[in-house]
Amino acid sequence: MQIFVKTLTGKTITLEVEPSDTIENVKAKIQDKEGIPPDQQRLIFNGKQLEDGRTLSDYNIQKDSTLHLVLR
């Protein structure tokens, strides 16, 4: 499925993911596309910070959902 990740600069990254993917996996995909190390990434969905060990389906993230990427 496709999800979107919006950065603070207003750029939107499109990712191909599975609901069973962990947040860690998603961060690795963002690193592949953008070169941002996962330990600098914080992903936010519906105002909640997403934890590495959880999956997209844990957070009820579905296709065409938009996550927000904050760098630390």
Rank of each mutant, 00 (worst) to 15 (best):
V17H: 07
T14A: 09
Q41W: 11
T22Y: 05
L15H: 01
E51L: 05
E24V: 02
K11Y: 11
P38F: 10
L8S: 13
I44D: 12
L8P: 15
K27G: 01
I13P: 00
E16L: 15
N46P: 01
L15T: 01
L15Y: 04
L8H: 03
K27P: 00
T55A: 08
S65G: 15
L67H: 01
Q40R: 14
V17F: 04
F45V: 09
K27Y: 03
S57Q: 12
D52P: 08
Q41T: 02
Q62P: 14
R42K: 13
L50Y: 01
L8T: 14
R54H: 13
G53F: 11
E16R: 04
T66F: 13
Q2G: 05
I30F: 14
I3V: 10
L43Y: 15
Y59D: 02
T22D: 05
N60A: 10
N60I: 12
L43R: 00
D39E: 03
G53K: 03
P38K: 12
L8G: 05
K63A: 07
R54D: 13
T55D: 14
N25R: 14
Q41K: 06
D32Q: 14
V17E: 01
S65P: 01
K48D: 09
P37D: 14
K6F: 06
G35T: 08
V17Y: 09
D21Q: 03
T12D: 05
S65T: 10
G10Q: 06
I30A: 05
K11E: 02
N25V: 13
T7S: 07
L71R: 15
P38N: 08
I61V: 15
S57K: 12
T7I: 06
T66G: 05
T12R: 07
T14I: 03
L71Y: 15
G35V: 05
R54P: 10
G53M: 04
R42T: 07
L56H: 00
H68V: 02
G53D: 11
M1T: 02
F4T: 03
S20T: 12
H68A: 15
L56M: 06
E51M: 15
T14L: 09
L50E: 00
I61H: 00
G10R: 02
L69G: 01
Q31F: 11
